[in-house]
């Protein structure tokens, strides 16, 4: 094996998917290798969140055709919890509040599920508390949030920090962060972005789904993809995000139309 060639982590080919009998994805192709950061941008309804849910295995979303391979294995047959355990992490756009379930217990059970998969020893309550306290620093989060119910009564920013804390504990191979920047003020955005940067390493990859270029000022993507009408219509580097911010999606629409006309 040639160690200098980065391994493919995620390969999506001609993916078509629907939710509630409505088709949303019309042939998505995406190749993600180790160490890469990809940004996916696009209008509301272009299929960005659907793509993230399909990768994570949300049962309401049906794959009509195409494939998703994770490190060479087809994951479409895997249950969502199995996908998470092999290292696929979805940072939710709207993290769910679960009253009565302690955040600390939730984080511990989740962490141990992943550790089991990695053949690491499971952590007891005390060992886990040590680990979580260390990881809290990454997102500058108050330990008081561990004692509360999962996301219950958390502000938008606190919820997003709790997502990144989970990412820090689960040590995923690929993280798909769905609009992690939405609802964050400048300071919270910096903290969250710095957390994501700290957690990136050469063997993992990140997909940032975002509307705004401001997150990409904090985290430099290797690739920027634009989604429209359920597929990736344009791929470029960071400059593409800057152009998009300057000229809006009309610029993309025009570009695409020109291309179609040229055909």
């Amino acid at each position: 094996m040639n160690l200098s060639t980065p391994e493919t982590i995620l390969s999506i080919q001609d993916l078509h998917a629907s939710v509630e009998d409505q088709q949303i994805l019309y042939g998505v192709n995406l190749l993600i290798k180790e160490g890469e950061i990809h940004a996916i941008m696009g209008r509301n309804g272009s299929g960005k969140s659907t793509l993230s849910k399909v990768i994570a295995g949300h049962p309401a979303y049906k794959v009509l055709s195409g494939s998703i391979n994770f490190k060479g294995t087809n994951i479409l047959e895997l249950a969502p919890e199995e996908r998470a355990r092999v290292g696929i992490f979805l940072g939710f756009q709207y993290p769910v509040e679960i009253p009565g379930v302690s955040n600390l217990e939730f984080l511990r059970v989740a962490t141990n599920s992943r550790r089991k998969e990695l053949l690491k020893n499971e952590l007891d309550t005390f060992e886990f508390e040590d680990l979580v306290k260390e990881r809290l620093k990454i997102v500058e989060m108050d330990p008081a949030f561990l004692e509360r119910s999962v996301n219950e009564g958390f502000s938008g920013g606190e919820k997003k920090r709790n997502e990144i804390l989970q990412m820090a504990l689960l040590e995923p191979v690929i993280s798909i962060l769905d609009e992690t920047d939405s609802g964050l003020d400048i300071d919270a955005l910096r903290i969250v972005a710095s957390g994501i940067n700290k957690l990136s390493h050469p063997n993992s990859a990140t997909i940032l789904i975002t509307h705004y270029q401001r997150l990409l000022n904090e985290i430099t993507p290797d690739f920027v993809h634009i989604m429209a009408d359920g597929k990736i219509i344009k791929t470029g580097n960071k400059e593409l995000a800057i152009d998009l911010e300057k000229s809006g999606y009309d610029f993309i629409d025009k570009n695409t139309k020109d291309k179609e006309l040229a055909k």
Binding site: A56, G57, H58, P59, A79, P80, E81, R83, A84, R85, L90, F92, P95, V96, I98, P99, G100, V101, E105, F106, V109, A110, S113, R114, E117, S149, V150, Q166, L170
Partner: peptide, 20 residues
């Protein structure tokens, strides 16, 4: 789904929700 997406198995996730 939130719990499952964190690697928690179905039975454990349901028991956490009930406990909650």
């Amino acid at each position: 789904f939130y719990l499952l997406s964190r690697g928690i198995d179905n039975e454990h996730a349901n028991s956490l929700l009930l406990k909650g």
